[in-house]
């Protein structure tokens, strides 16, 4: 594995300003993440989903089916931009989190299982900084996946369907430029939501030396949260579940934009990031690294 060679470089250098060395470390980390065939395959699969949805909708022209998601999909037929929101609606509950869990869950446990973690720790970078780099890497990957989905959805939508002013859920119509701005806000919101999940996966990753364990734990947690969120008797739990806030990106499709609800969502994401970030930090800083 090329992991050791790539990482060996900063080790021989003398102490540099914190920011520069952080940047270098992050750069090499990102290089590894985005060159890894597994991660590229996941990006490709997720990028293909909007294309698939778009093509299916183009062939099977919907006759205005009732019901939330179906109606959302039929909206796409009228405007290509809606494909972006429809794709995100399909991917956000499970596929996107799974991708994030794989990358973030692997971050520390993967190094430990390969035996490369102790080499990384011999660098004068410090454990906190290493953890920060690992987390930043996962967050950037999360934003990248979200953007890839949005971009392929945009391209597919504009190729297969008419483009123009988009109708919001509230019934008002906004020009295309504002529609694109709303897509950007959505990417930001979903990206932060995924960053919150990345913090959870990172915390799991510091608890084990088996990467698949951390990944599976994160995915199981997501599924359990989704199930709990659908039980009406447990509706009191909903504000505390990460998964129930992910779907609130549909606030960008309202008029006016549901800033209140999305703001609350961002607060919840922030709480998750701080909580699980501190757990990862406490665990990683205090554990004996034997592999």
């Amino acid at each position: 594995m090329s992991t050791v060679e790539t990482r060996a470089r900063p080790v021989v250098r003398t102490r540099r300003p914190v920011l520069v060395s952080f940047g270098r470390l992050l750069g090499s980390e990102l290089g590894l993440t985005f060159r890894r065939p597994r991660n590229l395959a996941m990006l490709a699969v997720l990028g293909a989903v909007p294309v698939l949805i778009g093509v299916v909708l183009r062939i099977v022209t919907g006759d205005g089916a009732a019901g939330g998601p179906e109606a959302m999909l039929s909206m796409v037929a009228g405007n290509g931009l809606a494909l972006t929101f429809a794709s995100m609606f399909v991917l956000v509950p499970l596929l996107l989190p799974v991708t994030l869990a794989v990358v973030a869950g692997d971050s520390v446990a993967g190094e430990a299982s390969l035996g490369t973690l102790r080499y990384l720790l011999t660098a004068p970078a410090g454990r906190t900084r290493l953890l920060a780099v690992k987390y930043a890497n996962a967050v950037i990957f999360g934003f990248a996946v979200t953007s890839v989905v949005a971009l392929t959805a945009l391209v597919t939508g504009f190729l297969l369907f008419p483009a123009g002013p988009i109708t919001l859920l509230s019934g008002s119509t906004v020009p295309l430029a504002e529609g694109l701005l709303r897509v950007l806000i959505m990417i930001g919101y979903v990206g932060v939501g995924m960053a919150a999940l990345a913090a959870v996966a990172l915390a799991f990753s510091t608890l084990t030396e088996v990467p698949i364990g951390a990944i599976a734990a994160t995915v199981v947690l997501v599924v359990i949260a989704q199930v709990l969120g659908t039980i009406p008797q447990l509706s009191v739990l909903q504000p505390y579940l990460l998964t129930s806030w992910w779907g609130s990106f549909d606030g960008v499709l309202r008029d006016p934009v549901a800033t209140g609800e999305m703001g609350e969502g961002l607060l919840a994401f922030g709480a998750y990031i701080v909580l699980f970030g501190s757990i990862a930090w406490a665990r990683f800083g205090s554990r004996d690294v034997t592999s």
């Binding site: 939330g68 998601p69 859920l169 509230s170 779907g247 549909d250 499709l253 309202r254 549901a258």
Partner: peptide
């Protein structure tokens, strides 16, 4: 009056 639902809204 707006009743928001998931990916839907009644006004």
């Amino acid at each position: 009056l707006a009743l928001p639902g998931r990916m839907s809204e009644t006004n």
